[in-house]
Nucleic acid binder design. Sequence first.
DNA 1: AGCTAAAATGTTTTT
DNA 2: CATTTTAGCT
Length: 733
Amino acid sequence: MDLLQKLNEEQYKAVTHIDGPLLILAGAGSGKTRVITYRIAHLIKNVGVPPFAIVAVTFTNKAAEEMQNRIKALIGPIGESVMIKTFHSLAVYILRRHGEAIGIPSNFTIYDDHDQESVIKDILRDMHIDPKAVKPSMIVEKISRIKESNHYIEGGDITPLLPKFHSFNFPEIFTQYHEKLKAANALDFSDLLVRTVQLLRNKDVLHMLQSRWKYFMIDEYQDTNVAQYLIAKYLSSGTKNICVVGDDDQSIYSWRGADIRNILNFEKDYPNATVITLHRNYRSTEPILKAAWHVIKNNYKRKDKKLTSHRGDGEPIIVCTANNEYAEAEYVINTIVMLKHKEGYTNRDFTIFYRTNAQSRIFEEHLRKKNIPYVVIGSVKFYERKEIKDIIAYMRFIANQHDTVSFLRIINTPARGIGASTVEKIRDAAYISGVTEWDIIANSQTYSFKLSPALTAFKDIMQKLIDKAKETPQHYKLSDICISILHDTQYTKSLEEENSIESRGRLENIDAFVNSIFEYEHLHPQATLDEFLQDISLLTPADETNGTQDTITLMTVHNAKGLEFPVVFLTGMEEGLFPHANSSDTEEGIEEERRLCYVGMTRAKDRLFLTAAEIRRSWGSIHYKEASRFISELPSQLCQFTSFNSSYDLWDGPQDSSFDKFIAESVNKNKNIRNEITSSQFKVHQRVKHPSFGIGVITTIQGQGDNVKLTIQFLNGFTKTFLERYTPLEPVT
DNA sequence: AGCTAAAATGTTTTT
DNA sequence: CATTTTAGCT
């Protein structure tokens, strides 16, 4: 079949490897996705493996969807039967069908981190622990790490692992948390993986699955944790046809329990494994690839390797220092406008990366000001908006009346006169009788619970909706229930009456949500309410991307994994931010930050810009920032160093005195530099012409010999510093 | 019960 | 500084 002709030697070897364990070490941009999809196509078309016998696991649903489409493009509609999922969605698939074997009802609800926090807050309150003494999010984090640890999975005593805090009893919280989830018939993200491991230890279940699934492919294997590792291991234990793909240089999730040893020890785990290294990079120009290598080579803990570039020479990496974070944003957006104009790029060619979500705001403000369309991946996710979560909570409660978190969310939303004290009474009654809150309301006589008129009204509305969900035929069930919720609970009505700018926005979001349900119904005509809820609870940030519009993409570097863009801006390259201060204490932390930097840099195809701010405002005060150590790791002959100062004052109101002081100081510094004697062929105040920035005036000359740097103020507002020997400048009279 | 205004608190990265 | 939580008032 001709699909094999489009592969290089190593790719060909990987694709045509059929049986037995296979490790593909795929460097950045080495055609990893192509190898996975072609291998699947090859197995089906040339080897005769039935599509349903193949399982591929990727990192995001988006990646899974894309892979499914690529496979369908290669082999036709039959590619639909290949099982392509994330670990979490694969776990849901398995648990829904076989979970009963370990006591998990198939209609379980999935609690996201927000739901988990609500549960923890509840527990803290019940235990009379001051919620300020400890962050619930921190407890959630600890619980997840413990649950996904090898020790917990193997049934060991976890008490010694539990952190000891002076004022409260962590083991007790841990126990109560589990009881609450069990009572709510809910599983959290960790449970999905850990319970699946437990289930796969049941021989009957395992054999049932293995009779169907014969070939396994795991993408981003360097970022798997113990539970994921075990799921892959058990599933493939029958045939040993496991193919894993990864790159230890791109492991960026160790803080979430990912264990890089999974990929480093693959050959030990599977002694007769074939190992293929993909080292030819087809994505980035040579300077970009070289520069990225110069950064990553500083990591002590890595397999030494070097990618070869197959794209040839390109533009140098541009490193820009801006005087503050607003100037940084201005520089990035000016450069985008300039490149669009001069080199014909369109919005979708650009991406802005940053280390923390909070950094996106300033870029957004500037983009809005300039009327440039953009999407932010991951920050305020659509499904995390209040109104959407409210509707979903109604749907979840209708599907599962044990779901306490959802119940508490909806009981007085929209406000219907059921206050905190009433809710408290219901909860007490439920606790005393050992039943759910809904039981108390639905069968109030049994528990001699006095219902207020407001509660009776709530009960009637919910009872009607629950009954309706049972009776409605499948094919229009979802939209029908959703619209009934919006109507019967007066949710839309209360927003319409509010009639504020905000409520209008919410109504628009609800409209978008209803439309998405219609769309979903069309794609999955047989989907039940449970299935719908499970699908949306596993949606990841990258899944929200709208691929059709010409927009600039903004995202954290973590979200950038697996993507590529012609022009990449890697922003906030400052000590304390990237590498982040919280990771800078240990060598391991710095190495992971460095890998993150490597991932960011290697997303770029043609152009790479690194930017830093000298001053950044955070927590309301001003901080002087030093350039990131990763910048100093770049080889200077591959880079152009420049600076950008905001041409006008972006700060509203009276300026902070320390800011003024800093400006005064740096002006002084520049004065001294300006008087340095240099060996440049140019002079200060001379007019020159630059091929891409046009005409400007030299304001500063510094350095000696090969290191002469020229700072030029251009007519178009840019101020840049160039190394003279790399910059073709013409004198202008 | 529900709203407004003051206070507290928070920034790592996410399936 | 900006968002979220709480207190206090009506």
